[in-house]
Amino acid sequence: MTEFVLAVTLGLLFGLGTFLVLRRDVVRVVWGVAIISQAANVYLVTVGVGTTGGAGAPILGHGHAGEAAVADPLVQALVLTAIVIGFGTTAFALVLTFRLYEEHGTIDLDGIAGSEGDGAAGTGTAGDGAADAGGSR
């Protein structure tokens, strides 16, 4: 039963994440990526639960049903690492979204893609790059 509930939850989380990633709004895309990486973390935890589902804390002298009834602590350590990394990357992606809004005046992905075409046709981007390189030294 636990397995079934976890599987459905995971499926819903991945579905929601994928749905959000495919939006045009950059903030929603960032949320989608965050949800997908959290879903991956949940998946990792379920790996350690085992088939019995009733897993106790892996503390010496705590469990009394043998090692089969103990959750695998390794995946929990992995998830801790992954959460820290995910925290950093999500924060960075949000800051980048803000910078994107400052530069383009929109967080609509289509609007941003359009401005690239303008930049390539006009001289805006080239002048920008030239100023950067010329200003160095």
Partner: peptide
Amino acid sequence: YSGAEQTRAAL
């Protein structure tokens, strides 16, 4: 360089 093109590419 954090210009318009760079923020888009980096995102």
